[in-house]
Each structure stands twice: as structure tokens, then as C-alpha cells.
Write a protein that binds this DNA or RNA. Structure first.
Length: 578
RNA sequence: CGGGGCGUAGCGCAGUCUGGCUAGCGCACCUGCCUUGGGAGCAGGGGGUCGGAGGUUCGAAUCCUCUCGCCCCGACCA
């Protein structure tokens, strides 16, 4: 491709609305253009990168035995009502009417559609295992789209669905996808981590998220320093602490102290001269099963996902001021476990390091010398707090959890029979019994993967594409268009790359060299070959590795070979498996 | 949905408080000269219903009312 005719417009100045690096660079490098909030066009340069990722995904999915199909973006309300999600999905599902008044939605995901297909075509255990996938545009009407293509409303996603006759087979399907994902992100050249995730209300025993590691990532990951345990913030467990002994618990007995207008953790600590870890924070939640008091240490936060699972409830909300006054007998800030008349759940951390200070359920009073299991009627002690840096690993004896940031690019989970049951996707087993198909679902944000690659690989000059994702792997940059020798050499290199099956980009624009160099750095082509008159007189061209910043002088007739070696040697080559 | 901010040329901005000649600047774009190893210089040029509607006024980018869009923080969420 010749740059003089390629549809590419780079920007010198930073777009005002862009916040994160990948968004800024994608706009500046002419990859995308915003049409509306969370809705973007892919311009040719951006599309090339997107296609690279798509191709890798396609190859690995096919290699794993999945079959590609294409599903409609517009979906009738009926199938959503059948699965029960029409009522549950909320405003994120963009709904509308057609001319006849029939109700439709734009697909945010395709479980219903795929289940509808499979229930009509799969009737026997002999038809499985089956794995079908699609790569296409989806729409979720996000409350707040941001970060450009990373969290857009319209986005391109690969979704695969597996169908199995029994759990063992379903687990195999899951593992096959898991390792396909490892290959996909490895081939993209990304540093990533698969972390345990909460499978949410859908249930199921497995769920993993694939996170591209980047400082600017939106998600927190807790990862063990010693073993392989890693989980997202929602799921991350905390090791059970040693429980205090009853001898310790004997000293002191609960005493009320006057704490006028002292209600926040910080205020109580200052007033009584104690540390937050010596305080019991009592939070009142309302659920569909009634109110519940949740006790955590003053320096800890409740993890509502874990709490929900422990309580077995679906809706969880912090109670308001009025509710608290009514049920604890005191305004917000003075609730405590002693004498509280509602179910209580305490976090495991409260089994250790007593005694504690807690609210007295009486305005302007707290209670000191509280030993939780001695003094309060606690229904259950569970792991319900958010894990934090330095917590003990739940899987190994000595590891500590550390917090790292990541961008979620993939999610694999077991759906079980949620959709097959509600939508009647049944099959006949070997024994003649009729059962719902066991499903799994495996997504990859394609556009987000491109953004994540940029987020992970860039410097102050621009993008540094991993070669497998790069729209072009090589850029031929002749310095002076007026010099015949330069243009001949550049042209020969350009043709030679094409002969070797590499599509090079040639900057044949009649602009000053500085402009070309700046653009080359910005758009992040992995290898740049500069052809200049002086170098040619010396018998060489200059080959720059964008990632390493190294520059080598190489004879023109060896240049193509050298570049290919570089791309292969550094593991940078776009390596095909099919 | 709550709080904050912004809409003036493709991009980045000034002008708005305190109304007044033909609405400016930088980048980008076009023409010419010149230049050619890290976003050169000179000269000339094109491009705007100042987000939209209504109002006040002799006169509105500027003041008032309504409205639409966009961004950030928060709440929320695959």
C-alpha cells in the first residue's frame, strides 16, 4: 500500500474528548472516528488492525473445532420473553418497534438466537458436542460509554456457544475454549492473565476472564505472589484467618461510651484514638428476603457480589436513613451487632484481633470491648469483604495477594441449562431420556483487544503495534522522491516484500522527512526501512525496530531477509496455524 | 439518574463576563516559490447558518428562555 493514496489522516494535536492513551492514539493515528457517543467508525487503518485480530480468532476457533455462522443483529422480543431476559435485561437492551408495531431489540448478545437455532436442529446426543461462533456487531446501551472503542455501545464481538450432552463433555468444551483463548492472546503478542470470575446470576461452576495487563485497565485483579491464583475483584476470595481463642476474649466486657455526633469510621477512630481495624462497621442492607445487617472491619469494604451469593438473594441495596432509624433505633452511623433485631452476617476478619468497637444502636453512643462471637448473636460468619492488597492467598499457605490492573478482553463461562431449559432446547440421550442441552458461552471483545494492545504497547511518540496485530508489518520510507536511486531501491524493496507475502506500507508522499518519521512512529509499524541518498552511497539502508528502538545498517539486497528474520526471531511474525 | 464542564472551519482554541465595522488564531487543506534525515520558511487562497429554536435589542457568537449533543466524576453494569 502506498501512503500517497491510502486513506489515512493523522492528527498532530490531541483530541479533546479522549481520556485514555489507546483512545487518543487511535484517533490520532486515523484508526477510528466517533459518530455518536459510544459509536465509532473504523477507518481503513483501524479496520486492518481489527481484521488481524479477527483472523487470529477465526483460525484458533476453527482449529478448536468451532464452526462460524452469522446471526441477525435485530432480534424479535419473543425469544427474549421466552428466555425471561426481556424483563430482566433493563435499559441496556435497545428496544424498538417495527412498522407493524412488533417489538424488537438490537442484540447485545446472542444466547436466545443461537438456542433457537439449536433447538430446531439438534435432537440427539449424537449431534454433540457442537460449538458455533459468530463475529459481529452488537449493541449495549451503556449508561456511560467511555474510553473510545474500549467501552463503546456498538462493538464487535466474537461469541461462541458450546452444546454438550453431559457435564463431562461440557467441561471438555470449556477447557478447549480456554486453551484456544490462551493461544489467541499469545498470538496477538499480548501480556495477559486468565482470572477466576464470578459467573453471576447465570450460575455454573466455571468462569474465567482473560485480562490484558495494563496500568490503565478498568478492572482490578487480585493475584497471588506465590501460586497461580488470580481472580477479579468481584470474585477474589480471602483466606480464613486464625480464630481468636476464648482466653483472649475474656478480658473486658462491653461498655457503652458517649460519642456525640461521631458517626463515620474516621471520626470514631479519632475520637476514641483507635485504628479502623479495631472497629466493626455495621451496614444495613435490604434484600428481597428482608433486611440484613452486614458486619465488616472498619478498614474493609463489603464485596456485594460475594454477599449476594452468601445470602442467596438477587437484589441488594443499602438501606436508607429512615429504614435504619426504624430498624436499629438510631440514626445512620450508630448501628452495631449488639441487640440488633435482624439477621446478621459477619466477615471472617472479625474472628480475629478483638476486641472491637461497634455502634450501640443508640444515638451518640458506641460500645467498646466487643468480642463478636461472645457478645453478639451472629447467624453466620462468611467471606464477604473485598479482597485487598496484602491479604493472604486463599489457595496457598504463604502467598499474599497483590492488586494488578487489567482490561477484560475475553470471558468464558458455563451457562448450564439456563437457556436450553427456558427455551426448550432438548435432546434425546443414549438411554432415551429427554434432557436440556448443556451450554457454554465464550466471548472476545475484538475492538477492545485492539485497544488493549495499544494500551499495553505504546510510548510518547505513538503506537508500537505487536506485529501480529499491526496493519502493516513493514514501512518503506524513501527520504527524497526526487532521487532516482532512492526511489528505485525503495520500489525494489517494496516489490520484494510483496513477493514474500508481506504487505508493506510505502511512504511515497512528497513531504519532508520529519513528517514521515513522526507519522511512522505514531502509527506504530513494527519495522521501518529508511532509504536515503547518503546511506545508499555508503551501501546500506537503515532498519529501525519500533519496539526496541534499535537501528541497523543493512545492505539493500539483504534488507528484506533481515526484516523477516527480525519479525520471526523476535517472535513478532504473524504466525499462521492453518 | 445526581454533580460539574463544554458546543465558534476537519482538528485544537481565542472572542462571550462588559452586545457594535467584514468573526479571529494555530494545525490540516489548495496554488506558487523555496526546501528535503525528526512535524521547515515565504507569499497568496478556500472553507463558518458561532449546536438548534424562540425572545430582548437599532444591532446578538456575546443577554434571556427552551431544546439537542458531547465530555468528566459518581451511582450502575457484560
Amino acid at each position: 500500500m502506498k501512503l500517497s493514496t491510502f486513506f489515512l489522516n493523522t492528527l498532530k494535536e490531541e483530541p479533546r474528548d479522549a481520556e485514555v492513551i489507546s483512545h487518543k492514539l487511535m484517533l490520532r493515528a486515523g484508526m477510528i472516528k466517533k459518530l455518536a457517543s459510544g459509536i465509532y467508525s473504523y477507518l481503513p487503518y483501524g479496520l486492518l488492525a481489527l481484521r488481524r485480530v479477527e483472523t487470529i480468532i477465526r483460525e484458533e476457533m476453527n482449529a478448536a473445532g468451532a464452526q462460524e455462522l452469522l446471526l441477525p443483529a435485530v432480534q424479535p422480543a419473543e425469544i427474549w420473553k421466552e428466555s425471561g431476559r426481556w424483563a430482566v435485561y433493563g435499559k441496556e437492551l435497545l428496544r424498538f418497534f417495527d412498522r407493524k408495531g412488533a417489538e424488537f431489540a438490537i442484540g447485545p448478545t446472542h444466547e436466545e438466537v443461537i438456542t433457537d437455532i439449536v433447538r430446531d436442529h439438534v435432537h440427539s446426543y449424537k449431534d454433540m458436542p457442537l460449538n458455533l461462533y459468530q463475529i459481529q456487531t452488537k449493541f449495549r446501551d451503556e449508561i456511560r460509554p467511555r474510553f473510545g472503542i474500549m467501552r463503546a455501545r456498538e462493538f464487535i464481538m466474537k461469541d461462541a456457544y458450546s452444546f454438550d450432552a453431559d457435564d463431562e463433555s461440557a467441561e471438555k468444551s470449556y477447557k478447549a475454549m480456554f486453551s484456544a483463548y490462551e493461544r489467541i492472546f499469545s498470538r496477538c503478542g499480548l501480556r495477559f492473565k486468565a482470572v477466576e470470575a464470578d459467573s453471576g446470576p447465570i450460575g455454573g461452576s466455571f468462569s474465567h476472564e482473560f485480562m490484558v495487563l495494563a496500568e490503565t485497565g478498568e478492572d482490578s485483579i487480585l493475584s497471588c505472589s506465590r501460586c497461580t491464583y488470580a481472580a477479579n475483584q468481584e470474585k477474589a476470595e480471602v483466606a480464613k484467618p486464625d480464630v481468636y481463642s476464648w482466653e483472649d476474649a475474656l478480658d473486658g466486657s462491653p461498655r457503652e461510651v458517649h460519642t456525640p455526633h461521631i458517626r463515620t469510621v474516621q471520626e470514631v477512630c479519632e475520637f476514641l484514638d483507635i485504628q479502623p481495624q479495631n472497629l466493626i462497621k455495621t451496614l444495613v442492607y435490604t434484600t428481597e428476603k428482608g433486611p440484613v445487617a452486614v458486619l465488616v472491619r472498619g478498614d474493609h469494604d463489603v464485596n456485594e457480589t460475594k454477599l449476594c451469593r452468601v445470602l442467596g438473594c438477587e437484589n441488594l441495596e443499602l438501606a436508607d436513613e429512615v429504614f435504619i432509624q426504624e430498624h436499629t433505633g438510631a440514626p445512620r452511623g450508630f448501628a452495631g451487632p449488639l441487640g440488633l433485631k435482624m439477621p446478621m452476617v459477619a466477615d471472617t476478619a472479625l474472628l480475629k484481633n478483638g476486641p472491637f468497637v461497634a455502634g450501640a444502636n443508640r444515638e451518640d453512643y458506641h460500645i467498646t470491648d466487643v468480642w463478636l462471637t461472645r457478645d453478639a448473636r451472629i447467624q453466620s460468619v462468611e467471606d464477604i469483604r473485598a479482597a485487598i492488597e496484602g491479604d493472604s492467598c486463599p489457595r496457598c499457605p504463604t502467598g499474599k495477594l497483590q492488586v494488578i490492573r487489567g482490561i477484560e478482553v475475553g470471558h468464558v463461562f458455563k451457562l448450564g441449562t439456563k437457556y436450553s431449559s427456558s427455551m426448550n432446547a432438548l435432546f434425546l440421550g443414549e438411554d432415551g431420556s429427554l434432557n436440556p442441552i448443556i451450554m457454554g458461552c465464550y466471548g472476545i471483545g475484538v475492538g477492545r483487544t485492539v485497544a488493549a494492545a495499544i494500551e499495553q504497547y505504546h510510548d510518547e511518540h505513538g503506537i508500537i503495534f505487536p506485529p501480529a496485530v499491526a496493519p502493516f508489518q513493514v514501512l518503506v520510507l524513501p527520504i527524497s522522491l526526487g532521487d532516482t536511486k532512492v526511489m528505485e531501491t525503495a520500489g525494489a524493496l517494496y516489490d520484494a516484500f510483496k513477493d514474500r507475502g508481506i504487505d508493506p506500507l510505502m511512504d511515497d508522499r512528497d513531504v519532508r522527512p520529519g513528517v514521515k518519521f513522526k507519522d511512522a512512529d505514531l502509527i506504530g509499524v513494527p519495522i521501518r526501512i529508511t532509504v536515503g541518498a547518503k546511506d545508499l552511497a555508503g551501501g546500506y539502508v537503515e532498519i529501525k525496530n519500533r519496539g526496541q528502538g534499535t537501528i541497523e545498517k543493512v545492505a539493500p539486497d539483504r534488507a528484506v531477509e533481515y526484516c523477516i528474520e527480525q519479525l520471526q526471531h523476535k517472535g513478532m511474525m504473524f504466525d499462521r496455524t492453518d
